[in-house]
């Protein structure tokens, strides 16, 4: 939930008023909007002097990244310190996610696939991708890889583009990579007259991202189960939400759901009681 809260404070000067306001809201300076309602005035001999008045409003998305909603709806007007959840991450940039290294939560690793094992769709995909890269004048090679898999699960095939400084092929939040995969699969599917089932990765970007999402999913699920609380993750695009759903699919202590519309759609992790 991202309620905005707001307080008005009167104090001898602006800085003091802001300090007091931050204390009341129990937030840090980066997370509020400060409006100066009245500038302080000194007056003469105490006559006509005026205190500063400021209004602090918490930003629409408080402390970003992870927001926890307690089961209780009624929030006290002035939350005491213990009632304010302090997320581990204060930065909106999800690349700064700092989860402990815990290999038990790692996603399946990716291994190179021998040419003899390439399916028609992989061959078509690789050819298409190489042609697109050539026409984009990008110097890179395409490796064919597959995720490690068990008998009951199909592997995911990955066309892995590798080369020097391919960050432009990844783009902001993997946007360019998504377009590259979309076009490559579309062309390969059309050539084969069937759905081409592979993903495209650039310099391990997705592998790292998936790994991070897996770990985050499990840690949030642990919290949901332990504290018996519903955990809301930050909004993510469909393919990332899918990774979360898949990562937690086998857990019996939680279920997952996507809620919200459009780009605000986010995964909710719900504790399951037996």
């Amino acid at each position: 939930m991202s309620e905005t809260r707001s307080v008005e404070i009167t104090a001898p000067d602006i800085e003091e008023a802001i300090e007091a306001g931050l204390k009341q809201l129990d937030v840090s300076r980066e997370n509020v909007i400060v409006e100066v309602l009245e500038e302080p005035a000194r007056g003469i001999l105490g006559l006509g002097s005026r205190f500063a008045r400021v209004r602090l409003t918490t930003a629409a998305r408080p402390l970003s990244e992870m927001v926890v909603t307690s089961a209780k709806k009624e929030a006290p007007p002035r939350p005491k310190k213990q009632q304010v959840y302090r997320p581990r991450i204060e930065d909106d940039d999800e690349e700064d996610f700092d989860f402990e290294d815990d290999d038990s939560y790692a996603s399946p690793s990716v291994i190179p696939l021998d040419e003899a094992e390439w399916t028609d769709e992989l061959k078509a995909g690789k050819e298409t991708l190489e042609e697109i890269l050539r026409l984009m004048e990008v110097d890179a090679s395409v490796d064919v890889e597959a995720t490690e898999h068990s008998k009951e699960e199909n592997p995911t095939y990955v066309l892995h583009v590798q080369g020097d400084d391919l960050s432009s092929l990844i783009g902001r939040r993997g946007n360019t990579l998504a377009a590259l995969q979309y076009i490559t699969r579309l062309i390969a599917s059309r050539n084969l007259q069937k759905r081409a089932d592979f993903t495209v990765d650039v310099d391990g970007y997705k592998a790292k991202r998936i790994d991070r999402l897996h770990k985050m999913a499990h840690q949030m699920a642990d919290q949901a189960a332990e504290r018996n609380r519903i955990m809301k993750l930050k909004p993510m695009p469909a393919h990332e939400r899918r990774i979360i759903h898949m990562a937690l699919r086998h857990r019996s202590d939680v279920t997952t759901r996507s809620q919200g519309e459009g780009k605000f759609r986010r995964v909710t992790i719900i504790p399951q009681k037996d």
């Binding site: 984009m136 432009s168 360019t176 998504a178 590259l180 979309y182």
Partner: peptide, 17 residues
Amino acid sequence: GRVANAIRVLLRVVAAR
């Protein structure tokens, strides 16, 4: 407009260079 937009995204990479 997904296809057209994906083409635009790829073109942008080349043009940006």
